[in-house]
């Protein structure tokens, strides 16, 4: 049981560390928009060097936030949201879910109103 918990903590730590960087979150945002991108495609529209993007991708892959598939000589990258869902489910239980969603919707609606005014 202890081993199991320790194991989970290591996995979770990787996910949190991977998410704690705005460049890596940008890469995830890009993959959320469009899956199956190569390293070169991911380097477009980024202020980072190819080497930096490659390093960030390796970290995201190690945290299992990015899944990859090989197609010929290319490596395609995809957002893997499963670990994020695991984290979400850890703290947001059955009864809270509706309330949290309602608050999120309210926040979005207020934001949109604000944009309309400005």
């Amino acid at each position: 049981m202890v081993a199991y918990n320790a194991h989970m903590t290591i996995d979770d730590d990787k996910v949190y560390k991977a998410l704690a960087d705005s460049s890596r979150r940008q890469l995830l945002d890009r993959l959320h928009q469009q899956g199956g991108l190569t390293l070169s495609e991911l380097c477009e529209q980024q202020d980072m060097t190819r080497q930096a993007v490659s390093k960030h991708l390796a970290l995201l892959e190690a945290a299992n936030l990015v899944a990859t598939v090989k197609r010929g000589r290319e490596k395609l990258h995809y957002l893997n949201a499963v670990p994020i869902n695991d984290i979400y489910m850890r703290w947001i239980g059955k009864f809270e879910q509706k309330q949290v969603q309602a608050l999120f919707n309210l926040k979005q609606a207020l934001k949109e109103d604000h944009h309309d005014e400005t």
Binding site: D11, G35, G36, N64, A67, T68, V69, R71, L76, Y78, N80, A81, V82, P83
Partner: peptide
């Protein structure tokens, strides 16, 4: 074909 969605879990 290029797959659209890939998910991995351990």
């Amino acid at each position: 074909m290029k797959p659209e969605l890939i998910y991995t879990t351990y």
